[in-house]
Deep mutational scan, measured.
Amino acid sequence: SLEELLKLARHALRHGEEIHVLDRVITDEHEIKRLIEELERLI
């Protein structure tokens, strides 16, 4: 769900981890922040 993805993204950002989204691995902090902003808009 989007909520789950948002939780994962926030966790990854906090802990400096990578996040796997739709067969992509996002490691860049700015990309993760952008993902979080997009998800928050959708929810």
Rank of each mutant, 00 (worst) to 15 (best):
V25D: 05
H15W: 11
H30G: 14
L39V: 06
H20A: 09
L2S: 03
E18H: 13
H30D: 15
E3T: 09
H20P: 04
D23P: 03
A12D: 00
D28N: 11
I36V: 07
H20I: 13
H30V: 12
E18Y: 09
I19R: 01
R10D: 04
I43H: 02
V21P: 01
L13W: 05
L39F: 03
R34A: 15
T27E: 06
E40C: 04
A12V: 03
H15F: 12
L5K: 03
D28W: 05
A12W: 02
L42K: 10
D23T: 04
L8M: 11
K33L: 14
I43D: 01
R24Y: 08
H11N: 09
V21G: 04
L39E: 00
E37S: 12
G16Q: 08
V21C: 06
I26G: 02
K7D: 09
L5M: 10
H15C: 05
T27A: 11
H11L: 07
K7F: 09
G16K: 13
R41P: 01
H15P: 01
E4G: 07
D28F: 07
E3K: 09
E38K: 12
E31H: 06
G16D: 04
L39G: 00
L6P: 00
I36F: 02
A9W: 12
E38G: 06
A12T: 01
L13E: 03
E37G: 10
E3F: 10
I26W: 13
L6C: 02
R34W: 12
R14T: 15
E17H: 14
T27R: 12
R24L: 09
E18P: 15
L2Y: 10
V21K: 02
L42R: 10
L35P: 00
H20L: 10
E29C: 03
E29M: 14
H15S: 11
I43G: 02
E17A: 11
V25Q: 05
E37L: 14
E29Y: 13
S1W: 14
A9F: 10
L2F: 08
H11T: 07
E4H: 11
S1K: 15
V21R: 03
L5D: 01
T27L: 06
T27P: 02
V25R: 05
I36L: 03
E40D: 05
E37V: 13
I36A: 02
R14P: 01
R10Q: 13
E4S: 10
L42V: 07
A12I: 02
H20C: 04
I26K: 01
E40M: 08
I32M: 07
L39D: 00
L39C: 03
E4V: 11
R10V: 09
A9S: 03
E4R: 11
D28V: 07
L22Q: 12
D28Q: 10
R10N: 08
L39S: 00
E29H: 15
L35T: 02
V25T: 09
E40W: 07
I19T: 02
L13H: 04
L6F: 02
V21L: 15
I32K: 08
I36H: 00
H30A: 14
V21F: 14
I43A: 03
S1Y: 14
H30C: 07
E38Q: 15
V21A: 08
E38W: 15
R41C: 05
L8Q: 10
D28C: 05
R14L: 14
S1M: 14
E31C: 05
I32Y: 02
I26H: 04
E38T: 15
L39Q: 00
E29G: 10
E38H: 14
A9N: 00
R41I: 08
R14K: 15
E18M: 10
K7V: 09
I43Q: 03
